[in-house]
Each structure stands twice: as structure tokens, then as C-alpha cells.
């Protein structure tokens, strides 16, 4: 296995946004620990601050309180050290670049423009051979997402952050990409945080699933997932898998229920 990534420690993070005239508290007391080379999935109700948490870890935003530490470095230092790879639900490819130049963009930005071998390795890894010269508009949604993942990996980051990268895809493509994501993660051993809406997806790919509360978001339940790797689609049919999905689903419902109770208390 390749080198391990950086561990991530998030302690007591809060983040509030000014919105219109008022304020929206997205996160409060958010804690998370991902070991080096670990794979965590973050799941929670819509608008619970999952994406905000990920953006904070990526150094794209700054927390109002709390600390985020990665092997002694802050997210901003990690970002400035170009040690992070990100992929969002929107693949955010440059429409005027081809598949291979889109992937190369990341290398250009870290000053390794001539590393053509890395680009072709990644194209192979995500299964896009033969499409090197295609432009994003000529690709299917799933293929575009592969390009985005390849771009996030090409710099060999110490931390891979995925914000619902497969959210807009159909179930079949999604499962296929989950398999590939798992394979890539096994090959690379990069610390990975995946934000997702899908409980089966989280249980299928991650070492640990963190369930978040509604806004202001914090982690309310941890589920360690210790199925053997490599996990295959047969796993999806086992009772153990279903039991895990049920357990996570239970925590998620309880967490959603909390708001209702809290609001009832308020009145």
C-alpha cells in the first residue's frame, strides 16, 4: 500500500453565516476524528452543515470557533501546501479543456505541469482510456464525475474530500463508482472524507459513518464499519450489511426527531 495520508482532528468547531438580515448557525460543537489513511463518511439531514464542515476542513472557509488540525497543520496550511484534493457534486470541470487537460489542471496549479505519466495513470485508474481528448460536454454525468475524482487524486493529496460526488448520478452508475472509489482508496491509502445523502453508500465505502444532527450540525452518532475489504456487491445482499444500514438509519431518524422535540420544548 502507498503512503498513508494525514490524520484529521476537528474539535468543537462552530460556524455561523450572515444571511439576509439574520444569521444561520450551520455548525456548533462539531467534533470529528479521522485516522491517517482512514475513510469516514459524513451523513445527515438536508442543510445540516455537512458541506460546510467539509469546506472548513478543505480550508475553503474558516471556522468561527474550534480547531481543525491535520498532523500539526491547519486546513489553510494544508491548502497552501497543496496537500488536499476536493471533488464536489458538481464536477466543476473547465468546459473548454479536455479530459486529460482538466486532470492536468491540478498538476499545473501545484507546479508539476509536465508530469504526464501521473495524468495517464489516473485516466487508467478511473477507466477513461480512449476519452483523453473528449471535452466535458461530450461525456456522461458519471464520466465527468470520474474526471473530477481523477483531478482530485492526481496530485497525490494527503487528504481527499468528496462532497456528494455521486449525488446527481443514477443508482447503477453510482454503485459502479462506489466500487471504483473503494478500489482507488485501497490503492492510494489517502485519508478520505465523503459527504453523502445515501446511507447504503456510506456503509459500503467507509470505515466509519458519522451521523450529524440538523442545523446547527454536530456529530451525534458514530458507526464503525468493519466489513472486510475489498467489499463487493455481494455484501449489499447480506443481513449484516442491512443491519448496519438499519442502525445508521435509526440514528439518523433519531437525530432528525431531535429538532421536533426541541421545537416542541421551545413552545
Amino acid at each position: 500500500m502507498a503512503r498513508r495520508g494525514a490524520p484529521v482532528d476537528v474539535v468543537g468547531v462552530g460556524r455561523t453565516f450572515a444571511l439576509g438580515g439574520g444569521e444561520v448557525e450551520a455548525l456548533r460543537g462539531f467534533d470529528m476524528h479521522v485516522p491517517a489513511g482512514g475513510f469516514n463518511a459524513l451523513i445527515g439531514p438536508s442543510g445540516c452543515g455537512k458541506s460546510t464542515a467539509l469546506r472548513l476542513v478543505a480550508g475553503l472557509d474558516v471556522p468561527d470557533e474550534g480547531t481543525i488540525d491535520m498532523d500539526g497543520a491547519s486546513p489553510d496550511q494544508m491548502r497552501r501546501g497543496r496537500r488536499i484534493g476536493v471533488a464536489f457534486q458538481d464536477p466543476s470541470l473547465l468546459p473548454w479543456r479536455t479530459v486529460s487537460t482538466n486532470i492536468r489542471l491540478a498538476l499545473e496549479l501545484v507546479g508539476r505541469r509536465h508530469d504526464t505519466a501521473a495524468v495517464s495513470d489516473l485516466i487508467e485508474l478511473v477507466g477513461l482510456q480512449g476519452f483523453e481528448k473528449a471535452r466535458p460536454a461530450q461525456l456522461s454525468g458519471g464520466m465527468r464525475q470520474r474526471v473530477a475524482i481523477a483531478r482530485s487524486l492526481v496530485t497525490e493529496p494527503d487528504l481527499l474530500l468528496l462532497d456528494e460526488p455521486f449525488g446527481a448520478l443514477d443508482a447503477l452508475t453510482r454503485q459502479q463508482l462506489n466500487d471504483e472509489l473503494q478500489r482507488i482508496w485501497t490503492a492510494r491509502g489517502t485519508t478520505t472524507i465523503l459527504v453523502t445523502h445515501s446511507i447504503p453508500e456510506a456503509v459500503y465505502v467507509a470505515d466509519e459513518v458519522l451521523v450529524m444532527s440538523p442545523r446547527p450540525g454536530r456529530v451525534v452518532a458514530h458507526h464503525a464499519i468493519d466489513f472486510e475489504r475489498p467489499r463487493t456487491r455481494e455484501l449489499l445482499l447480506t443481513d449484516e450489511f442491512h443491519a448496519k444500514v438499519e442502525a445508521v438509519s435509526g440514528s439518523l431518524h433519531r437525530s432528525e426527531g431531535q429538532v421536533v422535540r426541541l421545537e416542541a420544548d421551545d413552545s
Binding site: 491548502r79 464536477p91 466543476s92
Partner: peptide, 11 residues
């Protein structure tokens, strides 16, 4: 999203 990608590499 494109700007975020660029920012994530400290462009």
C-alpha cells in the same frame, strides 16, 4: 465550484 477547485490548490 471551479473557483473552489482552484482555491483548494491555493491558486
Amino acid at each position: 465550484g471551479i473557483l473552489d477547485v482552484l482555491k483548494s490548490y491555493d491558486a
